[in-house]
Amino acid sequence: MKNILLVCAAGMSTSLMVNKMQAAAKNRDEEISINATAGGNIDKYGDQADVLLLGPQISYQKDEYVNKYEPKGIPVAVIDTVDYGLMNGEKVLDQALQMIKEK
């Protein structure tokens, strides 16, 4: 199973993106777990993720997450602002799966 973790400031708006991504994932023949958490709670979930996607509102913290998780083999990226604003779950899911494929 692929584990995708979305991280944002409070976990609220990103949970909406999780719903959109889960809907997109239903059409794929893969087992995909998608969850969201606030940055302050990431220690509970971060090491279990195959990829971390950061909400645009915390893009300024990207280097911190990269330094902590990429040495563990967990790629980190910021969700595109337009895709996030439009809640384009299909494109964000594609981004995450491509990152997992490239690791």
Rank of each mutant, 00 (worst) to 15 (best):
S15V: 09
Q48C: 12
K26W: 04
S15L: 12
G55Q: 06
D80R: 10
G40M: 14
Q61F: 13
V82G: 03
K101I: 13
A49F: 10
M21V: 05
N41Y: 07
L54K: 08
A96W: 01
V78K: 05
C8M: 13
S59L: 13
A49K: 08
P75F: 06
V78E: 06
I74S: 04
G85Q: 12
A10D: 06
V66P: 03
M17W: 00
C8T: 09
D80G: 12
E30I: 15
A25V: 12
K62W: 15
N27Q: 15
A77R: 03
K68G: 15
S59W: 06
A10W: 05
K20T: 09
G85T: 09
I32Y: 02
G89L: 01
A23E: 09
L5C: 03
I32L: 02
Y69K: 00
E102D: 15
A23P: 00
L6D: 01
I32A: 06
M1I: 13
V76M: 07
G89R: 02
A36T: 12
M21C: 03
Q61R: 12
L86C: 12
D83N: 05
Y60Q: 07
G46H: 10
N88L: 04
L86N: 14
G55S: 08
D63W: 14
V51M: 10
N67Y: 11
E30D: 05
V51W: 03
D47P: 10
D47L: 11
A77V: 08
Y69E: 00
L5A: 03
S13L: 06
E64A: 10
G55H: 05
S15A: 14
A77D: 08
K101L: 15
I4S: 00
P75K: 04
D47G: 12
A10G: 05
T14H: 02
L6A: 04
L97H: 11
V92L: 05
D83R: 01
N88H: 03
N27T: 14
A24S: 04
Y60L: 10
K26H: 01
A38C: 11
V76P: 07
S13P: 12
L16G: 11
A23L: 03
N19I: 02
S15D: 08
T14L: 02
V78W: 06
M87I: 07
D83H: 02
K91A: 01
V18T: 00
I100C: 15
Y45L: 08
Q22H: 08
E90C: 09
A9Q: 08
L54H: 09
G40L: 15
G73I: 00
K62Q: 13
A36Y: 06
K72W: 14
N35G: 14
